[in-house]
Design a protein around this nucleic acid. Structure first.
Lengths: 125, 125
DNA sequence: TGAACAATTGAACAATCGTTCATATGAACG
DNA sequence: CGTTCATATGAACGATTGTTCAATTGTTCA
């Protein structure tokens, strides 16, 4: 039985641990980072954001663009709404969605070299 | 029974759909985006990246900083390794991990205004 | 060689998540 | 009103995931 899963204090770099720990974000701050990354981590939601970058679209339009159902799109739009990434306006029976902060999605695209991608796709050029 | 879950073609903005669809990334490109966001979307992995930003650390050190087990850290380090986010060097029994691309993590921090955060935390200032 | 220890790995578990299906809401229009 | 259609919602399902536990690898050192 191993009561202390972590190694003995003698064998680690105590100074580095203290320094790094002091620099580290709080759990709450880390959580806010990861929550946004989680929203961006599914193809369906990312496609919605990329699509809305070019034009506002209703739920029906988005379902066609993503080749899925309006129900699936609506569920994902709710999550994007809750995270203040998209807003909507109602026009009769239709609900048109658009980006809350267009420059946010653009900045993701502009940093696409992060992803080791070679081409400047997703920009339509 | 509803054979066509998507609305009729007459009621959507056909031009917008065609335009947006043409601008949209390929599925493969979208997938590469989301895969990286997925790696960044858990507190344990993000903490590891933030910790390594300030100093290289062995698995044991990281377990102490994250207040978890070496096993949990090692599992997450494997994922970070597979995504080319961290590298390692061996020194006796210890394995020291560091960032492959320091500017990558820094660029995340520099863009923290994305997250609606008010303070410049995580920078140690 | 054998004990000690850092690190890795695989199986298993609980928890989370995205989609699907069925149903409900709500507006337009005859 | 009642029908139609766009959208939203809730339950349920399968799939994925992060952690835990147990076991293993590989190195150091006496």
């Amino acid at each position: 039985m191993n009561e202390t899963p972590i190694c003995e204090i003698e064998s680690v770099n105590q100074e580095a641990i203290e320094y790094v720990t002091k620099q580290l974000c709080s759990d709450e701050e880390i959580y806010r980072f990861t929550e946004l990354f989680k929203v961006l981590s599914t193809p369906s939601r990312l496609k919605i954001l990329f699509a809305l970058q070019h034009h506002e679209l209703c739920v029906c339009d988005l379902a066609i663009v993503l080749n899925t159902t309006t129900s699936a799109v609506s569920h994902q739009l709710r999550i994007l709404r809750q995270n203040d990434l998209v807003k909507f306006r109602k026009d009769g029976k239709n609900v048109y969605y658009s980006l809350v902060n267009k420059s946010f999605v653009e900045s993701i695209l502009n940093n696409h070299e992060w992803f080791g991608l070679e081409h400047s796709f997703c920009t339509g050029e």
